[in-house]
Nucleic acid binder design. Structure first.
Lengths: 123, 123
DNA sequence: CTCCATCGATTACAGGTGTAGTCGTATATG
DNA sequence: CATATACGACTACACCTGTAATCGATGGAG
């Protein structure tokens, strides 16, 4: 089910997650070109690998494919977050936040948002 | 300065970070064997690569080396945390905490700790 | 009907990673 | 001193990743 997604592959996934409909390879490439300068070949390689990993699905549309995420972004992001917290903080989130805070990682907005969030979580 | 540390390499770094003194390759291997089952060759390969990446330093002790971290764990952990937040949350920490909370990632202790932390950060 | 553009599939290839094995040398053992 | 051993350096090799190029089929242009 959930093979790891590499960084370059993630760029492609983001393009598909942010579209709310299945895209052709060409459309994916267009949506990426803005930032990165990848050839369409490169994008197709990524699409193929993501298909093989099972994190993309494709429907046939004539002789081409329409690609669509097979894994929700929420799910992926939650998994990666957990991995990091487990690997580096023994599974505890508080030290992570402490680290982010230390390096000016938290804006006043973040702080307010977190306080609101915690208020909700408190029993 | 800060090349990326792979997952297997991280295991070796953790052994050295948790020791408060320089260790020989054999000592590093011992400290790892508890959990993983790596041959001493494998550990030596990691040590060599970490040296090449500049995240370890070594002093000679007779004809062997004593290895010692050249990068503080704090620094590494802060960097990795930032990378994740940038990649997946557009640089904002609050959504990360929200995700962790959602998946039972926060214990009541965590919540209390975070509230205390935020209280300090608030201007 | 012919030829070109396009599509997915397959192949390429260098650098990183996981997991060792081999080599030459120095040292401890007998 | 001779030899087994332990050390670091170098080598191995399959798989993943980033970044494409090539191939065979097909559909559209003329």
């Amino acid at each position: 089910m959930s093979e790891r997604i590499s960084e370059a592959e993630l760029v492609v996934m983001e393009a598909l997650w942010s579209a709310n409909e299945p895209l052709t390879a060409a459309e994916v490439t267009e949506r990426i070109d803005a930032s990165r300068e990848w050839s369409d070949r490169t994008v197709k390689t990524m699409l193929g690998r993501l298909l093989a990993k099972g994190v993309l699905a494709h429907e046939e549309d004539g002789r081409r494919y329409l690609y669509r995420p097979a894994v929700a972004r929420e799910r992926y992001v939650a998994g990666e977050s957990r991995r990091l917290v487990d690997r580096l903080f023994g599974g505890r989130a508080a030290p992570l936040v402490a680290h982010l805070a230390e390096g000016d990682g938290l804006t006043p907005d973040d702080i307010a948002e977190l306080e609101a969030l915690l208020k909700e979580l408190r029993p």
